[in-house]
Nucleic acid binder design. Sequence first.
RNA 1: GGGGAAAUACUCAAGCGGUCAACGAGGACAGACUGUAAAUCUGUUGGCUACGCCUUCGUAGGUUCGAAUCCUGCUUUCCCCA
Length: 440
Amino acid sequence: MVSDINVPTAMKNFIEELKWRGMYHQSVDGIETELNKGMAVGYIGFDPTADSLGIGNMVQIMTLLHFQKCGHKPIALVGGATGMVGDPSGKSAERNLLDEETLNYNIACQRVQLEQFLDFDCGENSAEIVNNYDWFKDFGFLDFIRDVGKHITVNYMKAKDSVKKRIDGDNKEGMSFTEFTYQLVQGYDFYHLWKNHNCLLQLGGSDQWGNITTGTEMIKRLGGGKGYAVTTPLITKSDGTKFGKTEEGNLWLDGKKTSPYAFYQFWLGASDDDAPGYIRIFSTQSKEELDALEATHQQDPARRILQNALADEITERVHGKTALELAKEASGILFKKEARKADFERLPDDLLDAVFKDVPQTTIPRDVVTSGTAIIDFLSDHTGFLRSKGEARRALKENSVSLNKKKVNDGYTVSEEDLVKGRFVFIQRGKKKQFIVNVE
RNA sequence: GGGGAAAUACUCAAGCGGUCAACGAGGACAGACUGUAAAUCUGUUGGCUACGCCUUCGUAGGUUCGAAUCCUGCUUUCCCCA
C-alpha cells in the first residue's frame, strides 16, 4: 500500500471486524486469506424497488462502509437490469415488474443516497457505483443463453432455496421463467465485475447466498477463476417484529419520505436489548469505544447512552448535522415532562416551525377555538386527531390526552387561552402520539 | 367434469333461531410503575344526538314476530373423486 495521506485507514481484518460487529453469517472458505493479501474489491447489489433506500438496506450499506474502512474498495451495484427481472429470494409469490421509467427514477434516487455513505475520493480504495443495466442492455437473449446459460445446469439452479421453495415447497406457488432466470442475471453481474473490475467478493444478506454462489460458480466455469461470498445475518428485533418497519410502514433514508425527526426517533426508541447489537452494526466506532460505551450504559441504563449515541451518529450520517440538531431539539420539547406551554412560547417562530415540521398536523378555522369547543368534539370532529367521539371519550377516560403538555379531562373546553403564540395547539395522546392543530 | 366443506371484527377463533356489538387468544392503544427500554398489573379495542338508538358476521334475496345462526342464488377458498 502506498503511504499516501489520502489513504485513510490502515488495512484491518474485515472478517474479524464483521464477526465482532455481529454481521458475519457465512462465507466461502479462503476469503480471509485473500483479503489479508491487500486491498480487495467487493460489491453489494441494491434492488431498485423503491425511490429511496430504507433502513433495511442500511445493513448492506454499512457492510460496504466497514469494508471500505478496512482498507478495501467497495462497489455498490444498482440493479437496473436485475430490477427488471425480480429477485425471487424470500418471496413466496411472483412479483409485479416495475416499468422502466420508475426503475430509472428509483436508481437515480438510490445513487444519491449511497453517495452519502461511502467515500468516493480516498485514493485507490475509493467507492464506485455501477449499474448492471450498462452491461445487460446490449446483451441479446441468444447470446446470453449461449454464453452464460450453457454453463449452468438447471439441476444446479433448481437446488437453490429461492427456487426450491416455489417448486417443491409446501405452499408451492410456481414461478415464472423470468424469476427462475434471475440468479443467472445476478450471477453474471458478479462474473462481469470479477472480469472487468477485479472484484473477487460479493457481499449480501444471508438470503442472497444462493444468488451469490451462482456468481462464484460462473466465475469458475466461465472465467476459470475464484469468486468469494460473505453474507450478513438477518437483523432481528428482540420482540420478534421485523426490523426497519414501524406502524406507518417502512422507514426511508429519504428525508422527504421519512422525516429526520421520525428517523431519529426510531433509533432513540431502540430497546435495551436491541441497542448494543444495533450500535455495533451502524456505528463506525471501534470495538474499544463501543465496549466502553456499553459499559457506561450498563451502569445507568436510564440515561439511555447507547440509544442516544446510536441515534446521533446515524441521523447525522444520513441527514446531516443541522437536521440532527433540529430532531433533538424537537425531541426535547415534545417528550420532556417539564415542558409547558411557556416553552413553546419562548421559542422563535422559525425554529418552532422546523421542529414541528415532522409532527402530523391540521388546520382549522380560528373561531372553533375562540368560541370555545368541548374537548371531545375538538379531538374528533374538528381536528380528526382521534377517529371518533367514542375514541375521544375513551382516551379522556384513560387520562391520556394532553393539551400543550397538560392533561385534560372530558369536561374541558378548548378556548383562546390554549393557543400557543395565538396560532396553534399541541395535543398528545400518551407520550408518543402527537399532533398539532393550527388555526387560521 | 362430479361430490363435500367453509367464509365472523386487525389476525386466529367461538357462536348452531331470541338474553349478540357478538366468548376467548394474540396484536394494537392507553393508564400505573419507569428511562421515549423491558417486564408486570389494569383498562380500552363498531358508530351516535348514548341507561336508548343505528350499522355490522362473504354477497343478494327469502322464511320468521325475531337471523351471525334456517332456506335459495351468486362470489371466493379449501378438500376428495374423475
